[in-house]
Design a binder for these strands. Structure first.
Length: 216
DNA sequence: TTCATGATCTTCT
DNA sequence: GAAGATCATGAAT
């Protein structure tokens, strides 16, 4: 299946893109092999939204949000986790869709390796932690949160901030979205998670009943 | 230069 | 359901 074309990202408003991405598959073709998962949960961040990183002004951190639609904004949060956003809206406008959870579909072993490696090199206190992808709990735990899915797919800010989702020329580590691979699901619209301002805005979307959604 | 603050994950109760 | 880990970033001084 081919990557979603550019017009999907640039011909719709941000909140529409957030809904369109549900059921599509996020793919990372890394040197370690491909890993992929179905997007089951997203949040929109738009102009005039006090929770949006671009609410105040363009800075070094949020610069990617002001880039063209169909590129990635990767930022670091809470010390050492990363989250990924799909940039939307015209160039110069800081809007994006946060990918919050994936249902793993490809490269399950590799995802478990990366998550376990993150434990080893991360906090000292997690050094003895392991995720067994063969158990139901372990499998569910691979990418059911924005920080987790970034680790599972091997995404990092240095190589993927500003990266294009539609232009795959010459990449050794390319990311794109294809699909949709899931159809006929019910979507739930609700409020966003983990924010203080704009918490009442219903910009969060997820696939009803999907067990990989980070939080109901 | 200092200071407050997280779009989180994990463990423990 | 609560709290700790732990530091880059942005805004104030």
């Amino acid at each position: 299946m081919q990557p979603l074309p550019l017009n999907v990202y640039q011909d719709h408003d941000t909140l529409t893109v957030a809904q369109l991405l549900l059921g599509c598959e996020l793919v990372h073709e890394s040197p370690d092999g491909p890993t992929a998962g179905i997007i089951v949960e997203t949040e929109g961040y738009i102009t005039g939204d006090p929770a949006c990183h671009a609410y105040r002004r363009a800075t070094q951190r949020n610069a990617a949000m002001f880039g063209p639609a169909g590129t990635l904004y990767v930022y670091q949060i809470y010390n050492h986790y990363n989250c990924i956003n799909v940039v939307t809206g015209p160039e110069g406008v800081g809007e994006a869709v946060l990918i919050r959870a994936l249902e793993p579909t490809e490269g399950i072993e590799q995802m478990a390796l990366r998550r376990n490696e993150a434990f080893k090199t991360g906090f000292e206190r997690y050094r003895n932690n392991t995720i067994d992808a063969d158990t139901a709990d372990g499998f569910r735990n691979l990418a059911n949160g924005p920080g987790k899915l970034v680790i599972a797919l091997g995404i990092n800010r240095q190589t993927h901030n500003f990266a294009s989702l539609t232009d795959k020329t010459g990449d050794t580590s390319s990311i794109f979205i294809r699909g949709p691979v899931l159809h006929d699901f019910e979507m739930v619209t609700t409020t966003r998670i983990g924010i203080k301002f704009g918490a009442e805005l219903p910009y969060r979307y997820y696939i009803k009943g999907n067990r990989f959604v980070s939080k109901k």
